[in-house]
C-alpha cells in the first residue's frame, strides 16, 4: 500500500483530487444537466417532460408551419450574429482603450504601479447593476453629457442627443464593465517586458511604430490574447447592458436564455441556446490555448537565440 502510494502517478492523482472534485461538481455536473435538459421536451408550466426530443435544437434554425413542415427561419441566427458582432466590437474597443492604460502603468515606477492597479480595480467593488445604472444618469435625457449643451442653448428644452437606448449605449456599457479585465492581463505581460529591448530597437534606427509593431506587440501578445478572450466571453452572454442601456429592443443571446427559462417556460430551448453559447466559448478557448502555445514557442525561441 505504502509502496504504491509512492508511485508518482498515484501521488499526482491524489494531489489533483481536490481540483478534480471541484471542477467535476461545480462545472461538469451542471453542464451535463443542461446538456441533458436540452434534449428533453418542454413542460408547458415550466420544467421538462422526461422524453428524448431534439426539438430544441431544431427550433433554433427551423419553424414548423401549419402543415408541420420545417421552414428555415433566421430569427435566432440573427440574435447570435448580433451578439457576436457587439461582443467583437466591444472587445476591439476595450483593447484600443485598455492597451495604452496598461502600457502607461507598466512604465510607472514600481511603487506607483500598485496604486494604479488598485485604482483600476475599484469599480469591481460595486455591483455591476449599479454601475450600469450610473450610465443611465450620464447618457440619459438631462444627464451629465446633455446638461452643458442645454446650458449653452444648443439643445432645446424638449430635445435630446439620443445617446440612451441605442447600440452606442450598449457598447459604452460593455467597455466600462469589462475594461479592467482587459487591462490587467496586458499589464501582467508588459510588466515583464524588458524595456532595454525597446531602447535597443530605437538604437537600431527603428521608428516608434516599427518598435511597437515588432517588439512590444509580440512580447505583450499573451496578455492581449488573454484579455481579449476574458472580455469577449462575458460580452457574448451579457444581458444587463442590452436591457438597461439598449432598452431591451433587440434580444441578445443572454436575454434569450433568460427569456426562455423565466417567461416562455421552455427550459429545453433555453438550455439548447446556452449549450450553443457554450460551444462558441469553448471554441474561443481552444483557439486561445493554441495561440498561447505558439506564443510560448516563439518566446522560447527568442530566449534561445
Amino acid at each position: 500500500m505504502i509502496a504504491s502510494a509512492r508511485t508518482p502517478a498515484l501521488r499526482r492523482l491524489l494531489g489533483l483530487l481536490p481540483a478534480l472534485v471541484v471542477i467535476g461538481l461545480f462545472m461538469l455536473v451542471p453542464v451535463a444537466i443542461m446538456a441533458l435538459y436540452s434534449f428533453l421536451e418542454a413542460n408547458p408550466f415550466g420544467g421538462v417532460v422526461w422524453r428524448f426530443s431534439p426539438e430544441a435544437y431544431v427550433q433554433f434554425l427551423f419553424e414548423r408551419d401549419l402543415a408541420d413542415n420545417l421552414v428555415f427561419q433566421s430569427g435566432y441566427l440573427i440574435i447570435i450574429l448580433r451578439s457576436l458582432g457587439l461582443a467583437v466590437l466591444a472587445t476591439i474597443l476595450c483593447l484600443i482603450v485598455g492597451f495604452p492604460i496598461a502600457y502607461f502603468i507598466a512604465r510607472q515606477p514600481a511603487r506607483l504601479r500598485n496604486i494604479w492597479i488598485y485604482l483600476i480595480t475599484i469599480p469591481f467593488w460595486t455591483n455591476q447593476l449599479v454601475r450600469t445604472f450610473a450610465w443611465i444618469i450620464i447618457l440619459g435625457r438631462n444627464g451629465t453629457i446633455e446638461l452643458p449643451f442645454r446650458w449653452l442653448g444648443l439643445l432645446g428644452a424638449d430635445d435630446t442627443l439620443g445617446l440612451m437606448y441605442s447600440d452606442f449605449a450598449i457598447v459604452i456599457g460593455l467597455i466600462y464593465a469589462f475594461i479592467p479585465i482587459m487591462v490587467l492581463p496586458i499589464y501582467a505581460s508588459l510588466e515583464k517586458l524588458d524595456f532595454r529591448l525597446v531602447e535597443a530597437s530605437a538604437d537600431l534606427y527603428s521608428s516608434t511604430f516599427e518598435t511597437f509593431r515588432r517588439v512590444i506587440i509580440p512580447l505583450a501578445k499573451p496578455g492581449i490574447v488573454a484579455g481579449s478572450i476574458l472580455v469577449f466571453i462575458p460580452c457574448l452572454g451579457a444581458f444587463i447592458q442590452p436591457d438597461l442601456l439598449g432598452g431591451g429592443k433587440k434580444l441578445m443571446l443572454g436575454s434569450l436564455v433568460q427569456f426562455q427559462f423565466a417567461t416562455a417556460r421552455n427550459w429545453p430551448f433555453g438550455a439548447a441556446v446556452a449549450m450553443i453559447l457554450l460551444t462558441f466559448v469553448v471554441l474561443c478557448l481552444l483557439w486561445y490555448a493554441q495561440a498561447a502555445r505558439r506564443a510560448g514557442a516563439q518566446s522560447g525561441a527568442l530566449a534561445h537565440a
Binding site: R141, N142, T160, M164, G247, G248, K249
Partner: peptide, 21 residues
C-alpha cells in the same frame, strides 16, 4: 409600434416619464 419604442422594460417607468425619456 416598435420603431416608436425606446424601451421594453418593466422597471423605471416613472423615472423615464419624469425625465422625459
Amino acid at each position: 409600434q416598435k420603431p416608436a419604442v425606446n424601451t421594453y422594460s418593466s422597471e423605471g417607468m416613472n423615472d423615464r416619464l419624469i425625465n422625459g425619456d
